[in-house]
């Protein structure tokens, strides 16, 4: 079970973040407005909201894929640029983005290769990561020989290969069927429990957000604002039975209500 330290440190601190695309132009888009968010070490925080509310934009700001128009954002106490250079985070996208010509093991080794690890270290670490996502036997396979769920597990292994303290996940299971998605949710919880990593997870699915998270952050439609945060007090370890608990259904209803309220703001 995931254990929280006595005084967890803040991995992400966002204060007064605004993001405007094409500022001053006719087609100006106010994507995010006055975002204040703190994510503590070891938390699993899900961002949920309707399409276009800016959840992915917020994740991309944290990853320094884009820069905020105004506000202060810190990742591990550093600005996002320093955090990127220090490889403080790994990122998993909706598509697995694996190189077809590299074996599964070599795909996992890629970030380590960029960082200058020796061949032996890379191989050992990739194998360790593949064992963790239960794909230890598939190191010599190519991505096209794996199912969608397995490919996504490889991309999680790759994101964790260099031991980042933060994992950013942008709708990673959005393209999977419902059954595979539920299995992947369990896998992810197991990996989270093993690694004690902090996770920020973007999803459209209320069920997924409630099942996975320690906290769900609800966002309003554009301009995206954080309207409410709800602590998820479901017991650990979470499994298929968790989805049948009355508390689980109560939380689903609560998040759904909050989303409806956010829509009306």
């Amino acid at each position: 079970m995931q254990s929280q330290s006595a005084s967890p440190t803040n991995v992400i601190v966002a204060q007064g973040i605004n993001k405007i695309f094409n500022p001053g132009a006719d087609e100006e888009i106010f994507a995010l407005k006055d975002i204040n968010l703190e994510v503590k070490s070891g938390e699993f925080v899900s961002l949920i909201g309707p399409s276009g509310c800016g959840k992915s934009t917020l994740l991309r700001l944290i990853a320094e894929l884009i820069t905020p128009t105004s506000g202060d954002l810190k990742v591990n106490g550093k600005d996002p640029h320093a955090a990127r250079i220090d490889q403080d985070y790994g990122m998993v996208f909706q598509a697995a983005t694996l190189y077809d010509w590299r074996t599964v093991s070599k795909n996992v080794q890629l970030p380590l290769e960029i960082m200058g690890y020796s061949t032996q270290e890379r191989k050992a670490r990739a194998q360790e990561m593949l064992e963790m996502v239960e794909l230890g036997r598939f190191g010599n396979h190519y991505p096209w020989q794996l199912s969608g769920g397995m490919q996504q597990r490889v991309s999680i292994a790759r994101a964790l290969a260099f031991s980042p303290s933060l994992l950013l996940m942008d709708e990673p299971f959005g393209a999977l069927d419902e059954f595979t998605r539920e299995r992947m949710n369990l896998e992810l919880l197991r990996i989270w429990d093993t690694t004690k990593i902090t996770v920020v997870f973007v999803t459209h699915s209320i069920a997924e957000a409630v099942f996975l998270s320690t906290r769900v952050v609800v966002m309003s439609p554009r301009p995206g604002r954080i309207t409410r945060e709800i602590a998820i007090d479901l017991p650990y370890p979470r499994n298929f039975e968790t989805r049948e608990l009355p508390r689980y259904f109560a939380l689903l209803t609560e998040v759904r209500e909050l989303l409806r309220e956010a829509h009306e703001i």
């Binding site: 990853a63 894929l65 990127r84 220090d86 990122m91 983005t97 960029i114």
Partner: peptide, 13 residues
């Protein structure tokens, strides 16, 4: 289309 651009953008380069 293959997501490589984002992957390169988050690399420590």
């Amino acid at each position: 289309d293959q997501g490589n651009l984002d992957a390169m953008l988050i690399a420590p380069i």
